[in-house]
Each structure stands twice: as C-alpha cells, then as structure tokens.
Amino acid sequence: MVERRAPNLRGLVIHGLILFACLVCVFPLLRIFSVSLRPGDRIISTDLALIPAGASFAAYGKVLKQTNFLLWLWNSLVITVTTSIIGVSLASTAAYAFSRFRFPGSKLGLALLLGTQMIPAGMLILPLFLMIMRLHLTNTYLGMVIAYSVSSLPFSIWILKGYYDTIPRSLEEAALVDGTDHFGAFLRIVLPLSMPALSIAFLFNFTQAWNEYLVARVILTNSLMYTWPLGLFGLQGQYLTQWGMFSASALLVTIPVLGVFLYSSKWLISGLTLGGVKG
C-alpha cells in the first residue's frame, strides 16, 4: 500500500518536529545555564552561545555567599515539610473513610472536595491573609503553614482514595478475623500497603508548597523569612545587574525539583485524570 521510501521520510520529519519542540521546551533552561556561567563583567550581553566566552562558576559562589539564598531554601524547606506532613496525615485518614464506608454525606463530601478546586486561588488569599494578620502570624513559619496546610488536601484525598480502592477488602477482613479492629486493620495493613500513594501525595503537597509564590508574597515581608521564590523574584527584579546570580540560583532550585517531578509524574498524572474522570 505504501511505498518503501515514504515511511523513512515521514519518520525523519516526525523526529525533526519533535526535536524542535524539545529544543523549545529546554530553551529557557539552557539560557539560564548559559547566563549563569557568564563572567561578572559580561552579564549583560547579546551573546547567544550556550557556553559563553570566559565561562566561570563565579555567580554560584556569589549567590551562596552574598545573598540569603541558603536561608531562603531553609525557610522553604521548613514550611514545606511541615505542611506536607500535616496535609498527608489529614488526607490519609479522610481518604480511608471515603474509600471504605458509606455514611450520610459521603457522596456530597467527595463532590464538595472537587468543588473546592473551582475556587479561584486569589479568592482565598485575601481572607487568609487578613486572618493571619489579625492573629499576628505574618512573617512566621506558623502563619505560612496555616495558609498552606489544606490547600492540597482535596487532591491528596482523591489520589489516596483512588489507591485505597484498589486494595482488596479481604485483606482487612482477614485482619479482622486475625484479631484486630477496623482501625487496626487500617494502620497495620492498609497504610503500609499504601506507601507508594502516600509518598506521591507527599511529593504533590511538597511541590505545591515549594513552588508557591502568591501567598508567600503577602504573608512574608521580612527578607529573612523569605521562601526561595520570593528571594528569586527579588534578584530578578534588579534585572540587569543580578541576572547571573538569578540564573545560578534558579538552576540550583530547578534541578532537584525536576528530578522529583520526573520521578513521580506518572503517578501524579493518573491521579489528576482519575479525579477529573470521576467528577
């Protein structure tokens, strides 16, 4: 039906197109890399080369020594880990209730959880900010943790419920017969078996809080309390002079985040589409 040569040409075109798309996707990362290597006196340049003339790692040293970059990372880490632990523990039990029990309100509850995804993020920031201000928690870790802790809860509950649903009920029944109660079966059987889903929920909570900018910007005004996105925004603000430092620090935070995301993406996607389809 098809001539022998046609598929080769077609394959070549396809690979060419995809390669171009890949280049577009990686382009900003390459540019960040290239700019971060520029020597201090040539930050501003119209050079497009990947490795600029006189490349050096000086900008990295400057970021670590002259800015609060490490402090910002630490702040982010403290806030993020705390919120993720809270978020996942709340979600793990709630999702179990939704997965295994039919009780008054179970259907409505699940629907409302999806409904919260519709609320514009900007809508919640204002009252949260005012509450936190009123409680004198601006510029504190606690204020940030409060603001972040339930933001990923609906999604985490959906993802965990989906996973619990795949665990056969007979395992819990066996545990009941073996001599524990329902909660014991959850703790001893279901939770250990759900480690993959729990870690994915944790990673999701983590990346959400780790990359968050808008809430942090209104709650944290003291640059010693900044999370890294705020710090980075500040560096990029004074565009021309600190572009090198911005690029260096941007690359430093991006690499681990990329790694974590690529590792967990398959799971996140299945969770996302699962939540969508069921609704």
């Binding site: 890949c22 990362l29 960040i32 900018y213 996105p229 925004f233 941007a250 991006t254 995301f261 993406s265």
Partner: peptide, 15 residues
Amino acid sequence: LVIPWAMPQVVAVLA
C-alpha cells in the same frame, strides 16, 4: 517535553 510543566513556575516565568 514535560520540562515546562516540571520546572518551578516561578523560575520558568521569570526566566
């Protein structure tokens, strides 16, 4: 191809 999604949005947009 998923790098734009995987990158922290703040970094991607600012860059």
